[in-house]
Design a protein around this nucleic acid. Structure first.
Lengths: 155, 155
DNA sequence: CCTCCTGAGTAGGTCCGACCAACTTAGCAG
DNA sequence: CTGCTAAGTTGGTCGGACCTACTCAGGAGG
């Protein structure tokens, strides 16, 4: 996936988070995991692949790699989400919502999205600049002048 | 990706749409593409890979494969989005929004999301059951009883 | 009739990346 | 000085992505 230079924002995002394991790594990170071995053990992902994915996440600003030192231990490295990385919760929640609806699981959802303040259930949707929600059928994707006219340029 | 039987809805969704090309195929489908050759030419994807991806999308209910016949031509097949497939616009828009914000492109966004009725710009976000938007920091992901306790079960 | 063209794939070979297991390196604990 | 652990690196295998060429069916044109 070397399409980071695509004019399509979807393709650019996918070049960062579209490889295998990456979004599952972000799921773990959002639930508080920061260390290499915990990612590896939680996901059973091969260490070389994990190294690779963490590096691209750091390279593109979704995570930071920072040394830390627990008392009585040597310096180690922690992977922390950046604000940009934290915003991927929208993508993850959208995938989760889709999976819950269209690929249901006998026991029901294993994770719910609720508002921290009110406890109300949440869903992911489209909102306009006045804060009112808009249904999927009212969403229009319009091309700007930046849209490429040549074929295959949207790759 | 044979994790369609995961208890995690994110992992299940990714087993359907998480492979390379799949979400780009859905992007084309959402902009009206229905035929094999048009997908292939728009994305420059290898035909065997395209066959494979279209089949899994059909298998899991995101698309249908239906024969059609243009006058003066033999029967061919069209790939059409199902309602479930159309709902993936939320995932695509979330990826697009993230890419526009964090991996910007010199010419600016090539596609905008606007409300069909009002023309107002749209973004993807969390909405509660009263229709009010909730900021990312107010989103809480809570585990239900269906959440697996064994390690690596969330894969 | 024979040939060409087009749409929708299938088939064969190459190569890269995921996977697995073993090894490494650095520091602390006993 | 021997283990133990965290955080990787390295080497080999194998499946899937990739590219090219081929197939197959039905018009259209000559």
């Amino acid at each position: 996936m070397t399409t980071i230079d695509s004019s399509c924002a979807i393709a650019r995002s996918l070049s960062v988070v579209g490889e295998r394991w990456t979004l599952l790594i972000m799921r773990e990170a959002l639930s508080g995991v920061t260390r290499f071995a915990r990612f590896r053990d939680a996901l059973c992902v091969a260490p070389d692949v994990l190294t690779n994915r963490l590096n691209t996440l750091v390279d593109y600003g979704a995570m930071t790699r920072e040394p830390y030192q627990e008392p009585g231990s040597r310096v180690r490295f922690a992977y922390a989400l950046t604000p940009a990385g934290r915003e991927l919760v929208v993508v993850l929640a959208a995938l989760q919502q889709w999976g819950d609806q269209h690929l249901p699981w006998p026991d029901g959802p294993s994770i719910l999205r609720v508002a921290r303040e009110t406890g109300r259930p949440l869903h992911v949707g489209f909102v306009d600049d006045t804060g009112t929600e808009v249904g999927l059928d009212d969403v229009d994707l319009v091309r700007t002048a930046a849209y490429p006219s040549s074929p295959a340029a949207g790759r």
